[in-house]
Nucleic acid binder design. Structure first.
Lengths: 326, 326
DNA sequence: GCCGGCGGGACACCGCTATTC
DNA sequence: CGAATAGCGGTGTCCCGCCGG
């Protein structure tokens, strides 16, 4: 920066301002500075800038896993919006169990992010204390927590599955099962409750078939159908916690020669690309994966800039999409 | 840190050492310091540490897109290894066209990463200059560039498709087409060349069916098959540049009532989860998505620590997996 | 009493920006 | 609009004091 200043024949402070508040520098001066920056190939040191200004222009996000497309879509939404506003993302992969595990949070907070986005609302006690001590805006996403730390964006996983399960009953299916993991993911648990709600309301007995803990794989879905065939031949429809499981189940039905629907109706969750593309196309719950990311980013920026008060909870809703598989 | 030092009755420098080089601090002192850190909930400021030490323990990575599972698997591989070694990842999403576009690189380098991982080897001229000026280790991945900037890890996209296309010819298919985007992705272009290689060697005329530019979607694959049915009814097999296209095509064949294989054999690329799960299971090229990330991380750390010399190029290879769809 | 090694301390400075003028 | 001063929160470097041999 000193080099740039000398070439442009101004002081370092002016170079700094040409970068951060260009409207406060005379146009002619600014041009000289910009030319000098281009000449020496100056790349401003954001680390030093962060330290001096106490603003890092970094947002930290914790997700259960980066690999699965659920969260990579959400991250893309955040990233698209954040980059446009000059922010960068640092990502921590918490395990599915102890959401936002402690060490992940510590390292993330060590980078002094201006805001923190968390998946879910079940945080370890010590983690929660560190988060509060950090005194930065927080957004919890993918659920609507009863008592949010700060802001939240998501939808009701429970209501979503309640709706699709109720729809299955109304459509005349007699024995509707629920297929998904029983632990390891708070949102999957909420979905299970939604299913139970619908069964109880209709005076049915819930039938649960468990799959291994997340991340769910197609073969888990296939295996679950195989088990259903042996142990619960009366089942004629099922709600899955994920399209991934549902698609695995669909292929398994093809292998068994089961008609979908007819012998076995399938309802997924997520509305991934494959749901619409499959034959038969998959009935599922469409959830705003990308939009959750965008909205989380919008919220966190608003909180950082003080334009949005704490305590906002945004319900982005869901939509049950009836297709051919039910 | 000053607080911690006072409580532990040592100087700040000792606190710093207890964190960074604990073996150089007397065990008893170290315990006092650690207790003090726990007591006040001290979270070290990595920004200040980076500035002072000129080591950020950050690795920057540029990928065409975060959303697609190709790269999110790779990122997961990098992330898993890097976090274990105390490094953090910052991700930039370059557009597919101008890989590693300039502004992305600038912001990333502004964070003063200790290393840089790039997808592909086609970089804009100005970007390349900035990368060289940064004087940090670089790893290019997902290809084996003829003239790498520093290190590289990947496999030959061209050889991979050459192999699967040749296999199709050997298997007796008379009119093997290539279906994929014609531009927008250097690796897709290399795959196209591999197909052309195989056709030329066998004295066949290449048949290309183009799909929209990446990221590829299932419906692009479905549309391509629909077009093939009209314009090239002689085609009895096709190589796709991606399993995503191939699966879309598979579903389209089911809709058309085409037997797969028989009327239309399908070969994908990537060996995604769905390839093995589909009915019929998909013949495809298995590529080490996760391992590329791991290896890129291993290389970059080795280069940072000076344990690995510049110029290493690691070929992770590929494997053609023959399943039921061909 | 001198030497080498180890634990711990002081000072300057990393590159940039808030503040005041 | 531009300049000077004073840090932001740590760590490299050099140094000292202490110990046993």
């Amino acid at each position: 920066m000193a080099d740039v200043a000398e070439i442009a024949d101004v002081s370092m402070i002016t170079v700094s301002r040409a970068l951060r508040t260009p409207e406060r520098v005379a146009p002619e001066t600014r041009l000289r500075v910009e030319a000098a920056m281009a000449q020496v190939g100056y790349v401003p040191d954001l680390v030093a800038a962060s330290l001096a200004s106490r603003r890092s222009r970094v947002v930290a996000v914790v997700v259960p896993t980066i690999g699965s497309s659920i969260f990579s879509d959400t991250i893309e939404g955040m990233s698209d919006l954040l980059h446009g506003r000059g922010y960068q993302l640092i990502i921590g992969a918490g395990s599915y169990d102890k959401e936002g595990s402690e060490s992940v949070i510590t390292t993330l907070l060590g980078r002094r992010p201006d805001g923190l986005i968390l998946t879910g609302s079940r945080h370890a006690k010590r983690a929660r204390r560190m988060i509060e001590d950090a005194r930065i805006p927080v957004v919890e996403m993918w659920e609507l927590p009863p008592k949010p730390i700060d802001s939240a964006v998501g939808f009701s996983n429970r209501a979503a599955v309640r709706a699709i399960a109720a729809g299955l009953v109304e459509a005349g299916y007699r024995n509707v099962a629920f297929i998904g993991p029983s632990e390891g993911d708070a949102r999957a648990t909420q979905r299970r409750q939604g299913y139970a709600d619908a069964m109880v309301r209709n005076g049915r007995t819930p039938i649960f078939i468990e799959t291994p803990r997340p991340p769910s794989q197609m073969e888990h879905g296939a295996a679950a159908v195989a088990r259903a065939a042996r142990e619960h031949p009366e089942i004629d429809a099922a709600c899955f916690t994920s399209d991934v499981l549902a698609i695995g189940a669909l292929f398994q039905c093809q292998r068994l020669g089961w008609k979908v629907p007819g012998r076995f109706a399938i309802a997924g969750f997520g509305d991934f690309e494959i749901a619409a593309a499959a034959t038969p196309a998959l009935t599922t719950v469409s959830v705003p994966r990308y939009k959750i990311g965008e909205e989380a980013a919008r919220l966190i920026l608003g909180r950082i800039d003080g334009e949005i008060p704490a305590g906002q909870a945004v319900d982005l809703g869901f939509e049950v999409i009836w297709r051919e598989s039910t």
